[in-house]
């Protein structure tokens, strides 16, 4: 899951990024409205966290422009408590949720999860493929009775694969959703992580849940 944070106050952006990264999301931060608009249109983010008070292009304007251009990425806006008006305008402009500053970190994370859940279509939020179960709230993964311990990146990769189970995911798609902008796409990191994941979740099984699609990428099988 890859998230764009558009926030001009560097320290606010910084702790939001760290909190999201701890949850194994890939995070990009930009500090002005113009950059935010460009990035949101060129990368297929899973979520945008948008401050309304931004230099160059105000947050509200950015949001309207995104929606006008047909970008449907879920957006959480950050507003000031006194500006009820702003909140309403933000929601009207196409925001999916809002948080008022100062907000609780846990709330930000909970809303992030709930937006992903809405996008993924599972009301409980728990993802399941065969007997592989992933709980985004507790970040617990298990196969059958077996608990599986994953690193942050492995978890992120697995979550993305499971959310898109049955779909063929190309390497660029995986990079875009699991890694942030600093990631160097010419390495074979994805293949390495896929093999780590296979090692952990498919141990002792005949067939792997993660199948390689020759020439294109990977797919999480649902037909086992």
């Amino acid at each position: 899951m890859r998230i764009l944070v558009v926030e001009d106050e560097p320290k606010v952006a910084s702790f939001i990024r760290r909190a999201l990264e701890e949850e194994s999301y890939a995070v990009d931060v930009c500090a002005d409205g113009q950059k935010g608009l460009d990035w949101a249109q060129s990368v297929d983010y899973d979520l945008i966290i948008l401050d309304l008070m931004l230099p160059v292009i105000p947050g509200l304007e950015l949001l309207k422009q995104l929606r006008r251009n047909g970008v449907k990425i879920p957006v959480v806006i950050l507003t000031a408590r006194s500006e009820v008006d702003q909140r309403v305008k933000g929601l009207d402009a196409g925001a999916d949720d809002y948080l008022t500053k100062p907000f609780a970190i846990e709330e930000l994370l909970a809303r992030t999860r709930s937006l992903f859940r809405r996008a993924g279509g599972t009301p409980s939020g728990i993802l399941q493929v065969d007997d592989l179960v992933l709980n985004p709230v507790t970040r617990e993964v298990s196969r059958g009775e077996q608990r599986i311990e994953l690193t942050t990146k492995e978890y992120a990769l697995l979550e993305y694969l499971m959310r898109n189970a049955g779909r063929v995911l190309t390497r660029p798609m995986i990079t875009e959703h699991v890694w942030d902008l600093d990631f160097d796409t010419f390495t074979n990191v994805i293949d390495v992580y896929i093999s780590y994941l296979r090692n952990k979740i498919d141990r002792g099984r005949e067939q792997s849940l993660i199948q390689t699609v020759r020439g294109s990428g990977y797919v999480m099988r649902t037909d086992v």
């Binding site: 606010v12 702790f15 701890e22």
Partner: peptide, 25 residues
């Protein structure tokens, strides 16, 4: 009061955010 609350909001957001994040684990 609008100015004051607005300007105080940013440092409050930062201290709250940093502290909560630190306390998560």
């Amino acid at each position: 009061s609008a100015d004051a609350s607005h300007e105080l909001r940013t440092p409050l957001t930062i201290t709250k955010g940093e502290t909560e994040l630190a306390l998560r684990r």
